[in-house]
Design a protein around this nucleic acid. Sequence first.
DNA 1: CGTGGTTTTCAACAAACGTTGAAAGGAGCG
DNA 2: CGCTCCTTTCAACGTTTGTTGAAAACCACG
Lengths: 196, 196
Amino acid sequence: MTPRGRTGPRADRTDARGDILSSARELFSARGFRGTTMRAVAEGAGVDVALVPYYFGNKEGLFAATLELPVDPRAKLDAAFAEGVDGAGVRIARAVVGVFDDETVGPTMIGLVRSAMTDGTAHEAVRDFLVNVIVEGYAIHLDGPDARERAALAAAQIIGLAVARYVLRIEPLASMSVDEVVAYVGPALQRCLDGP
Amino acid sequence: MTPRGRTGPRADRTDARGDILSSARELFSARGFRGTTMRAVAEGAGVDVALVPYYFGNKEGLFAATLELPVDPRAKLDAAFAEGVDGAGVRIARAVVGVFDDETVGPTMIGLVRSAMTDGTAHEAVRDFLVNVIVEGYAIHLDGPDARERAALAAAQIIGLAVARYVLRIEPLASMSVDEVVAYVGPALQRCLDGP
DNA sequence: CGTGGTTTTCAACAAACGTTGAAAGGAGCG
DNA sequence: CGCTCCTTTCAACGTTTGTTGAAAACCACG
């Protein structure tokens, strides 16, 4: 019948699945769930559109595969509190900035934050994650009757930092060095943890 | 030819344009720009789809009309600083929470925050607005060589509060009363403004 | 009563979307 | 070689999207 183009395995690329995942991470991070099309993901990976549902089932499966966290936030949080509450603010700030500034896992984290605002399904998932993991992770290391409230306040401050510096890129916050950001955010965070 | 339904002006609704705008505000706030369809907006307003581009040109025009701020944030900011820097944190916190908790202008503000995360025209517009109006508005009331840095930090804290309480609805922050939120956020904000 | 302007609906458009089925190329094994 | 399995592409599908053009109803003015 009509002649086909070259199908079958190709020698110039060994990991099509990984390439699709990378392209999807980048696009979901930049345009959110609904703003990202499977065709754009495929084009970014240099493959045909049909290969995307072949590997990931459907668009939601691709999104879920993208959102698998490349770091364990709970472990980082416990490590920051391991040396005591004093100075935990600075250590948490450094851990957060380190993760978001990292060029391999950073885009995924930014995409997670961004998609938490726009998408419906990711909305609940990210909220539950933040409430059960982060806020609780803060609260168990704090004392006082309002530990949860102060933990939520600290979480809000982290969220504000992530949104302002990495999503909205508000100056001069976006152009500061890692050390500068830690120097500003760390003490502010510490005061949230300590309370009045 | 084929019989038409009832066209022309209708007696049961006097302000179709305003109804479309309300429906659009609600949907843009809940689902973002790309997640909102003109058909859903029209259905929410009880109008035919074609009436939306008739009044607003296209989808972007509708979005722009939606984003026209119902409050003047610069005036509120100056008012909070009018009685001096001392206690400005609490007054700013009360003003922000008051606006976002208001049932008429609150959804618009939430929609603005949410749409600031999605890429496109709204992204740049909201970022420029935050940088030029809010951060500058903070900075001119502060002293010291790092006034802009501290202002950006305060802005990040406001953003974190808005995202955590109103978009992600993180507990226990989302269920707190206005006074409780002000009592927690106000002092934290004040420490950002004062510096070390 | 006619005439023009504004508002509203219907119907249809081209484009883009996610998804599917079938075909074809390569690798491994008998 | 023949058979089978995995990978990749093509082509098409049924929807949904934003947008447009024409027709119909109401209103105001002559």
